[in-house]
Amino acid sequence: MATTIAPQRTTSARVRRTSRIGQLGRWTFIAIAVITQVTPFYLALTTAFKPITDTTSLWLPPLSGGTLDNFSTAWNSGHLEWALENGLIVTVVSTALTCIVGAMAAYPLARRSTKLNRFVSLLILGMLMVPPLSILVPLYTMLAQLGLLNTYISLSLVLTTIQLPLAVFLFTQFMRTLPLSLEEAAAIDGAGLTTTFLRIVLPSLKPVIATVVILTSTNVWNEFAMSSYILNQPEVRTLAPAAASFFGSQGNNIGAAAAAALIGLLPILIAYLFLQKYFVKGALAGAEK
């Protein structure tokens, strides 16, 4: 009896030990990931609440008492109240346009597998490889000639164009997984192409729409390069260029820049808290079949 139980105990002890080691490894990995994510925010907080004359290490909290001066500098000198509003307008418009135009463009590409459509799909995919700044000069010239510089519509259209290739790709891939039978049934019931798209296809796209909304809105909200060229007047500047304006050739105001970044983070944080389940679902949607 004893000879048969002993190996079982040894095996279960080994399994428990292996499981404990595995758990330890998982927790270590999670801890490293959390620290990596949290550290920049910690540094931004310590910097934003320190007066400019506090030259202690960035890692230390404001030991001589915190200050809100950096936030008032960021808000007043950086015109953050405008920047937040401008960022919101450009983000909502670009995201809405990307979703609508992206879904409409993807529908024929997913459903009609012609040579031309395959070529167009590849062309759209290829546009992902074009660095946006490589077309800056002709684009800027065109906008200047049209008198559209420093207008919301110009940046919204440019950013929509930049975001569209990825959106079209995601929509196309997702639509190909939808059963054709639904659309065939709609056709038998007399639905036209537009009706089928709006009433049958579009409602089925909810998961991928969530993905596109998340990707597009965060990309547009954080976009810096194009925004700084196209909207460079303080009244229309978006958030990232407004925060970056505290870095200059004649010296930096890191405290104000950190404060601006934290203020800019708030809308995303609030949106995330309220829409958490949609964000998680949307982020996972691309992985589902």
């Binding site: 307008i89 008198g147 919301y152």
Partner: peptide
């Protein structure tokens, strides 16, 4: 989208 562009009109972001 249309409202946001037009509502903020007149002063900022709608004309050079």
């Amino acid at each position: 989208a249309a409202l946001l562009i037009s509502a903020t009109g007149c002063d900022r972001g709608t004309s050079a």
